[in-house]
């Protein structure tokens, strides 16, 4: 039997700390409860006539919400009472400062993409986003990165508009042929 190379699997079962797991369990229960008692009553319209209760539009969502609540309970109970396996590696959920900054920057880029799309156009937004991400991830292979940032969106644009017949959003500033 060939032993598959698995560098990732050797460091044991990755776990979160018991405190984190408990918080997750409680959080899941809160989400389930919010769905059941806040979202379903307010955002699911039930028609005037429901001949059979199981046919109500809210029937399935309610079952799902209860499932989530129960599972949240099980998760919390397990975090409280079950011992962790001996070879567990506890992962830390905390984010270091540079990591946090990078995540924030990425979030800003993603938000920027969405809001700039209709105004600037998909091609130009993609070019800028590509270039920014290359810079954000350390700026290695910078020259290639900048070339790819220009070429890839253009290639995709021509493929989708000319071959596949999809109208890629052009924006209001510069239109491509």
């Amino acid at each position: 039997m060939p032993a598959a190379p698995e560098p990732l699997a050797f460091d044991g079962v990755h776990m979160l700390s018991r405190r984190d797991e408990l918080l997750i369990g409680l959080g899941v229960m809160v989400i389930g409860a919010a769905i059941l008692w806040w979202i379903i009553p307010n955002y699911i319209t039930t028609p005037r006539r429901v001949p059979i209760r199981a046919l109500s539009p809210a029937f399935w969502p309610k079952i799902i919400a209860w499932t989530i609540i129960v599972c949240g309970g099980v998760l919390s109970a397990r975090a409280l009472f079950a011992p962790a396996p001996p070879d567990a590696v506890t992962d830390d959920l905390s984010v270091s400062r540079p990591e946090g900054l990078r995540l924030l920057a990425l979030g800003a880029i993603l938000l920027g993409i969405y809001f700039a799309l209709p105004i600037v156009g998909m091609v130009w937004v993609s070019m800028i986003a590509f270039a920014l991400l290359v810079l954000l991830s350390g700026g290695k292979h910078l020259a290639w990165g900048m070339i790819a940032a220009v070429v890839l969106p253009l290639l995709l644009y021509f493929f989708f508009t000319k071959v596949a017949g999809v109208a890629i959003p052009q924006g209001q500033i510069v239109r491509l042929p």
Binding site: P118, I119, A167, P169, Q170, G171, Q172, R175
Partner: peptide, 25 residues
């Protein structure tokens, strides 16, 4: 909003060309 902005864009670009109706796809 999106449709409006696309429309504005289209109008802005269509205006200077005095050609007949379909000037683009």
């Amino acid at each position: 909003l999106i449709a409006l902005s696309m429309g504005v864009a289209a109008a802005a670009l269509a205006a200077p060309v005095a050609a007949e109706y379909p000037t683009r796809p």
